[in-house]
Each structure stands twice: as C-alpha cells, then as structure tokens.
C-alpha cells in the first residue's frame, strides 16, 4: 500500500467531512428558520413560557449558542467544535449537550444494527449463492421465495406485524423499549439479558426483510459467475464441490456484495430510524424523530453529521482494504 494513496484517500475523507459540516452549518441559515425562535414559539404555544419573557430568553440562547457573533466567526467556531464532536447544547433539552444525548443513544443502535447487518449478510449471501448453485438441495428453492417477498417490504412494517403477533397476541416478547422501564442501564447479566430480549423483535424485523435483499444480489452475481470461463476450467480440474462453490464461485461473486456490506455498515447510524420508532427503541433513530418533533436543530444536525461520518469512515475502510480482496484493483488508480 503506497503512502501517497493512503494520504490522498485521507484527504478525500477530510474533504467530505468538511463539506458535511459546512452544509449543516449553512442549511438552517439558508432555509430561513431561526431555530431558537421556532423553539420559543413552540414553548410559548404550550404555555411553558410567557410571551413577555420570550424576547429575553432568545437573547440568552443566542448568546449561549454564539449566534450573536459575525457569520465567519460562527463558521470557524462551528467547524472547530464539530471536529471535536462538540455539537453544543440541545435546544429541546437545553442544559443537556447534544454530545451526551448521542453518546447515550449510539451504543444501542450500533450494537443492534452491527449484529443484525452481519447476520443478514451471512445468511443472505449464503442463501443467494446456494440458489444459483445447480447442485443445491431442493429445499433451498422452497425456503427462498418467502424471504424474497419479504425483502420488498420495508422492515418497520414487518416490525408492526411482529409486535402484534409476538408482543400483543402471544406476549412472548416485550412490546417496546430497549430494557424494562424500572431498570437502569448497567453491565449486569440480568440487564443484558433484558436488553437482548427487547432487541429480538426489532432485530427479527430487520433480518426478515434484509436476508432477501442480500440473497437476491448474491444470486444474480453468482449466476453470472457460474457462466465464467474460469468456473468451467475449475470444474474440469475435478475440484471438490465445496472448493468450487466457495473459492471459485462465492469468492468472486461476493466482491460487489462486500462493497454493499461496507456501505450498509456505514448506514448503521440512520439505518433503522423507523424500526426504532415502531419499537420505541432508545437508539439514534428514536432520537432523530424526537429532534424532528421538537425542532431540535442542534441535535438534528449532530445526528446528520454523525451519519455522514459513519458513511465516510466505511468507504474509507473499504477503499483501503478492497485491493486486498480483489488483486485486480491497484492502489495506484485511487
């Protein structure tokens, strides 16, 4: 791996992050929405603050958020703070910082979706590869179509069905949340078990819909790979079936799937917003929806920035590792 390639790639990464920060700085200013006034109006309409006090509070907020400084200074400060993951205070939960809200929600989302994404990928890719394999056992052809059908349906809709069946009708799993309401998050086996039980339905809804997605992509790639000349030569070498399947077929057909895996890992932060909403899961998606409802712009932009960061990191890792997977790609071309 050449140093210049790595440096160049890192440069692109920083450029993207700078672009994202700049975008999230200017958009609310272009959109002509003053987040503070919006928020104050909302509070006032609920009778939380009297109209007379609003003016003073707005001044106070603007000062604390640094909105009274010239634009250029605001921008530089914003960039510097963003780089340190300091997104300021949440507008809705004022004294709480955006950073601490995100820190609390992020692990829930990351753990759930990382596990689920790898599960989807593994099962789906295997299923898809087997489907395109002429010597596959017959039952696979029966198992596959339901997953293909489910893959067309968004997973939160499947989640609603699962809640009705498993949480309401049969009461096997908890209805919503990430853990029992009485308990506080801690590293105890009882709490972890509780958290796992709560995550089974959200995970199941994503897996049910996700497997088919990976299987369809893989089946297409594997079908094309089966037609390649090197598969014919490999078979004429009298290779054992499993070696042919894994090291000649799947190994080649999987290359685009790995790109897709990296991208979907990058999308983890925003990947399951609606599943989290449906299950009231305490992750980033739920936070995002709250931010939308509360016009909590600082929280909203913090989450957006984080999402873009996730995608940028995923593509960076992919670009740095892909040449190891596909010898035809060289670093020089980056």
């Amino acid at each position: 791996m050449t140093t210049s390639y790595v440096l160049k790639r890192l440069g692109v990464f920083l450029l993207v992050m700078w672009g994202a920060a700049t975008f999230s700085f200017f958009l609310p200013r272009i959109a002509d929405v003053n987040p503070i006034e919006e928020r104050m109006a909302q509070l006032a309409s609920r009778g939380a603050v009297s109209v007379g006090n609003t003016e003073a509070m707005i001044k106070n907020f603007e000062k604390r958020f640094g909105l009274d400084k010239p634009l250029a200074e605001q921008y530089v400060r914003y960039l510097w703070n963003t780089a340190r993951f300091d997104f300021g205070f949440s507008i809705a939960f004022f004294p709480t910082s955006v950073g601490s809200i995100i820190r609390e929600a992020l692990p829930w989302t990351i753990v759930l979706l990382t596990v689920v994404t790898f599960m989807n990928f593994t099962i789906g890719v295997l299923l898809g590869a087997v489907l395109a394999w002429p010597r596959a056992p017959a039952f696979v052809k029966v198992v596959a179509p339901p997953f293909m059908g489910l893959s067309a349906i968004p997973y939160y809709l499947i989640g609603i069905g699962l809640i009705y069946l498993f949480a309401f009708s049969w009461q096997i799993f908890p209805i919503s949340g990430g853990y029992n309401i009485g308990s506080t998050p801690q590293w105890s086996s009882a709490f972890l078990w509780d958290a796992v039980r709560h995550s089974i339905l959200p995970a199941a809804s994503i897996v049910l819909s996700g497997i088919g997605f990976w299987a369809i992509g893989m089946r297409g790639m594997m079908t094309m790979t089966m037609g390649e000349d090197y598969m014919l030569l490999a078979e004429s070498k009298g290779l054992k079936g499993w070696r042919l399947f894994i090291w000649y077929g799947m190994r080649n057909a999987m290359l685009p799937q790995i790109t897709a895996l990296a991208l979907s890992l990058g999308h983890i932060v925003s990947g399951a917003i609606l599943v989290e909403v449906v299950f009231s899961y305490p992750g980033i998606g739920g936070m995002l929806v709250q931010a939308i409802r509360n016009f909590d712009f600082t929280l909203l932009y913090g989450i957006v920035y984080l999402t873009i960061l996730g995608i940028a990191i995923a593509t960076l890792i992919l670009d740095l590792t892909y040449p190891r997977l596909d010898p035809r790609i060289t670093y020089a071309k980056g």
């Binding site: 004429s236 080649n252 596909d326 010898p327």
Partner: peptide
C-alpha cells in the same frame, strides 16, 4: 482426463 480451455483470457480464477 484433463482439459485445456478455449478462452485462456478468462479461464483462471482472477482472485487466486
């Protein structure tokens, strides 16, 4: 019984 294929261009596994 072994075979030498027609299209040598794509007859080898590109990733091995």
């Amino acid at each position: 019984l072994s075979m030498i294929p027609q299209g040598a261009m794509n007859s080898l596994n590109p990733v091995a």
